[in-house]
């Protein structure tokens, strides 16, 4: 049997086409800032609280503010129920999101404080950490936290031999040909720097460089959506 190369995507999108993005700002009125971001049927909401005094006090940094991210998924956001509460995966993702957002946030002027970002994935179809970062960046801006720039994230994949943007679950699980390589990445919007990069799969150095270039392009599209939504906020 001859296996078909991956030349047409499961949902018919072009290789560099992202799913339809949706942004809603102020979804958690209680929070200092909040946003919903979705890539098709992957939906994440983020709420920002702070800068506020950090407790317990011994965790305070007298030189600058601290950014603290908590990412999690609702138990019913996935096919098989996810046990509520933090696990190893969510701890790691929280940390890499924190690292991704840090270069953009200017909380060095707020010693002893914390900016808390709470993120929940409501519905998951791959790329949840990317949707989470996109929602969080908008929520930070909405909260009025001083920022140098925004951060946009997209998952780039190498499916068989093709480089594609914004993976869905079926693509992540693709096994034919060269299989699937998943590369979530994030770029800062103005300085264009890579602030998140993870990878799992099988890829050569040259292909990886190509994927990162595709990621930079894709993140620009996210940024355009984020900016458009933020401009509509009247407060």
């Amino acid at each position: 049997m001859i296996k078909m190369a991956y030349t047409k995507r499961f949902d018919g999108r072009a290789f560099d086409e992202l799913r339809k993005m949706k942004v809603k700002i102020g979804v958690v009125p209680r929070a200092d800032g909040s946003a919903l971001f979705s890539f098709g049927d992957t939906i994440a909401i983020a709420a920002v609280y702070g800068p506020r005094p950090l407790h317990p006090q011994h965790m305070q940094n007298p030189e600058k503010g601290v950014l603290r991210v908590n990412y999690d998924m609702l138990p019913f956001s996935v096919t098989e129920r996810k046990k509520p509460g933090p696990n190893r995966r969510s701890s790691e993702i929280s940390k890499v999101i924190e690292w991704a957002l840090s270069p953009a946030v200017r909380i060095d002027e707020f010693p002893n404080t914390v900016v808390d970002i709470f993120i929940q994935v409501l519905q998951a179809n791959a790329s949840t950490r990317c949707a989470a970062i996109n929602a969080a960046a908008i929520a930070l801006a909405h909260a009025g936290v001083p920022m140098n720039e925004l951060v946009g994230a997209v998952s780039i994949g190498k499916i068989d031999k093709s480089i594609v943007a914004d993976l869905i679950k079926e693509e992540e699980d693709y096994e034919d040909g060269e299989g699937a390589t998943d590369m979530p990445m994030a770029f800062t919007s103005r300085s264009n720097k890579l602030c998140l990069l993870q990878l799992d799969g099988k890829i050569s150095g040259e292909e990886l460089k190509e994927a990162i270039k595709a990621g930079e392009k894709a993140c620009k599209k996210v940024y355009a959506e984020q900016k458009k939504a933020l401009k509509m906020v009247k407060e």
């Binding site: 690292w99 840090s102 590369m183 990069l197 993870q198 099988k202 150095g205 990886l208």
Partner: peptide, 10 residues
């Protein structure tokens, strides 16, 4: 082939 990657830190 590169099988896994992780960028760490801020």
């Amino acid at each position: 082939m590169i099988n896994a990657m992780q960028k760490g830190n801020e």
